[in-house]
């Protein structure tokens, strides 16, 4: 008999060492998340995956699953907190969905739809973040970075390159490129890197390809994000 915990009243089996979100996704239950990715060590920064375990809030991407846990996720309380977190992400950067080439393929946008986010609610920061277009094949549009660190983890742990890093603290945190010039062209980043395809939003983009997929055929046109329980599908990485 495998071990189980309950998620919103349903039994979820798990293996030793799995986190709550890993077990839930594997069993076909969606828990909103942005910085979690099945291929990488947890980062635990976006807090969207927060659930209640035996009545106490915790990030489901860092919390190990354990026998008999009572986990709540789809509650109005948790979802309204998730909505507020998502709204904050929208106002911290410059996210203009109608003209963003990642629209329809973007996890932030899809998550906002899932959470019924109608407006940004908070005042926009309108930060000034210039693009890095120095690389011949890839563009970095920092305006949309949500600091999930997936590119950092991918470049370091899979590509063995350390192209990206998070710098600064708190509200001053930002993504940097590890080169003396700070430019992507001066790194050994390449299109075949894992880091090139891992960004859940529209920061790391192949050049000259935007809008090639018509509306109706994009990832989240076909089904909402909660139907993609294996996030590798959502990112078209396979």
């Amino acid at each position: 008999m495998s071990k189980t915990f309950t998620l919103d009243g349903k039994d979820v089996p798990f293996r030793d060492g799995q986190t709550i979100i890993e077990a839930a996704l594997e069993a076909g239950h969606y828990i909103p998340h942005l910085c979690h990715h099945p291929d990488f060590k947890a980062h635990g920064s976006c807090k969207l995956c927060t659930v209640k375990v035996n009545g106490r809030q915790t990030a489901s991407c860092t919390m190990q699953a354990a026998e008999g846990q009572v986990v709540e996720s789809e509650t109005e309380e948790l979802n309204s907190e998730r909505r507020a977190l998502t709204q904050m992400l929208f106002v911290e950067g410059n996210h203009f969905c109608p003209s963003c080439e990642k629209s329809g393929d973007c996890q932030l946008q899809a998550t906002a739809y899932h959470l019924n986010m109608m407006t940004a609610h908070y005042d926009h920061f309108f930060p000034n973040r210039p693009l890095d277009a120095s690389h011949p094949d890839f563009l970095l549009d920092f305006n949309r970075c949500i600091l999930c660190s997936l590119c950092v983890r991918a470049s370091r742990d899979v590509d063995g390159k350390n192209v990206f890093a998070l710098a600064g603290r708190g509200i001053k945190s930002h993504l940097i490129v590890n080169a003396r010039s700070g430019k992507l062209a001066d790194t050994d980043f390449s299109a075949a890197d894992k880091a090139a395809s891992v960004c859940p939003v529209g920061v790391i983009l192949p050049k000259r390809r935007g809008f090639a997929v018509p509306i109706g055929e994009r990832t989240f046109d076909k089904q909402p994000i909660d139907a993609y329980v294996d996030t590798r599908i959502a990112r078209k990485e396979e």
């Binding site: 203009f96 003209s99 963003c100 693009l131 000259r208 935007g210 809008f211």
Partner: peptide
């Protein structure tokens, strides 16, 4: 200004 050219046809609609 400063936007990638392939984005412009969509962006200018705004």
């Amino acid at each position: 200004q400063g936007r990638p050219y392939w984005e412009v046809p969509v962006m200018v609609q705004r």
